[in-house]
């Protein structure tokens, strides 16, 4: 039995420890906001946090999450996360939406580390997150709007 804490709630899962965290979360915990798209850490759709640090859940064995706090899009509630989600709505970033949980998790994590990201910082932090609908122009803009919100809140 693997004991996990996901979005603050305990879950005991009877799984092969090598099962990717992604499938544990999706198929066994039932949280489907975290998406599968490539399975090999190439697209960022499956981004979750382990103790606040972003990881690609598709290549992270579920056993790595034992004893750590897992945060998924459903549990994203940090000020950075909220600022990002609000900016995403304001700028209407979303198209098909499939990549967006991952985009938002990566963007919020960037703002957590860097309150004033430049274009280059954004490109670097976000280039692991693919969007086939190519919402990139708005993602870039929305991260800046979120940064402003966050800094406004702080000051």
């Amino acid at each position: 039995m693997l004991n996990l804490s996901i979005n603050g709630k305990p879950h005991a899962l009877d799984l092969d420890p090598q099962t990717p965290l992604l499938w544990a979360i999706r198929d066994h915990v039932g949280l489907t906001g975290t998406k599968y798209s490539c399975g090999i850490a190439q697209c960022g759709s499956c981004t979750v946090y382990l103790d606040g640090a972003p990881v690609r859940a598709c290549i992270t064995p579920v056993s790595d999450a034992v004893g750590k706090e897992v945060t998924t899009i459903e549990g994203l509630s940090s000020p950075a996360g909220q600022a990002v989600q609000a900016a995403w709505r304001e700028l209407e970033v979303v198209q098909c939406g499939y990549c967006q949980s991952g985009q938002i998790m990566s963007a919020a994590s960037l703002l957590q580390r860097n309150r004033k990201p430049t274009d280059a910082d954004i490109d670097q932090a976000m280039q692991g997150n693919l969007c086939r609908c190519a919402t990139y122009a708005r993602i870039r803009q929305a991260i800046k709007v979120a940064a402003d919100k966050l800094n406004g809140v702080q000051s």
């Binding site: 489907t32 906001g33 998406k35 899009i73 709505r89 979303v94 939406g97 967006q100 938002i104």
Partner: peptide, 18 residues
Amino acid sequence: PRKDSPEKINGQAIFTQD
């Protein structure tokens, strides 16, 4: 505002995969 945005940014939107 788009009608599908809110549930696509909080992970609630249901795709076939879900």
